[in-house]
């Protein structure tokens, strides 16, 4: 009996250990961002190729059936653009410049998932170690538009679709201290949007395509809205 209890506790502990801690949103520290002594770099992560995700179609045959049933949508999804995310980086840079901050432009996207993992830093800290970039980029803080999934998603229950497809954009936008890996801003991004009206209009799927770009616009609006507002000019 005791062995069973012990095994159960060990199993539960292992499960808890496996679960990634959820990073809650952190409001942008505008003092740090706008401090003239702090060099801030602006970057995007390596952007994913837009794709159709079919969560719930887990078995091999289910995956094949679901992929086949949604092949036209999948093909179309791959043609969607992520240029708006790259353009957002430029808009962030221009906005900061307009507010009097001269950010460092990080030209190449950062492969965040290839950075080494941090150990036991907990909530409020990045799970990836950015310290290797401090010297390379000559920055103190790095503002990263880190979008990890873009495209469409359609939930499945084995072989059967559970709902209509939705556009999806997920990831996070954050500002991280490249030496301590502490976040001074963390904005989780997990946007879903259904088509307005009919969705099943192959091969171009106009309604779903609009939803996808509406999500990118939402991302743009929320990121730019989080940046400090232009100080009021005095008329003296």
């Amino acid at each position: 009996m005791k062995i069973k209890t012990l095994l159960l506790i060990t199993f539960l502990a292992a499960l808890v250990g496996c679960a990634a801690p959820l990073q809650y949103p952190i409001k942008l520290d505008t003092t740090t961002l706008m401090s003239p002594d702090i060099r801030v770099g602006v970057a995007t992560s390596v952007l994913p190729q837009p794709s159709l995700m079919l969560p719930g179609a887990d078995c091999l045959l289910c995956m094949a059936v679901a992929a086949s049933a949604n092949s036209t949508l999948s093909t179309h999804t791959k043609t969607l653009s992520t240029a708006e995310i790259e353009a957002l980086k430029g808009e962030v840079i221009e906005t900061l410049k307009a507010r009097g901050k001269a950010p460092v432009v990080v030209a190449d996207p950062i492969a965040v998932v290839k950075l080494p993992k941090t150990k036991k830093l907990g909530e409020g800290f990045s799970r990836r170690d950015f310290s290797s970039l401090a010297e390379q980029l000559q920055v103190d803080q790095l503002l990263v538009i880190d979008i990890t999934q873009v495209g469409m998603t359609r939930p499945y229950a084995a072989y059967v679709p559970r709902a209509s497809p939705q556009a999806r954009v997920s990831g996070a936008v954050y500002m991280v201290d490249v030496r301590t890996n502490a976040f001074s801003w963390y904005m989780p991004v997990d946007y879903h949007l259904s088509a307005e009206g009919e969705w099943d209009e192959p091969p171009e799927y106009p309604a779903l395509t609009n939803s996808y770009y509406q999500l990118l616009e939402k991302l743009r609006d929320e990121v730019l809205a989080a940046l400090p507002v232009k100080p009021k000019e005095t008329g003296e």
């Binding site: 229950a157 559970r162 939705q166 879903h192 259904s194 307005e196």
Partner: peptide, 16 residues
């Protein structure tokens, strides 16, 4: 009106 549920991930779990 645009459906308020547009941004809600919809789904239904079936007994299996």
């Amino acid at each position: 009106r645009s459906s308020d549920a547009r941004s809600t991930p919809a789904g239904m779990a079936y007994p299996g």
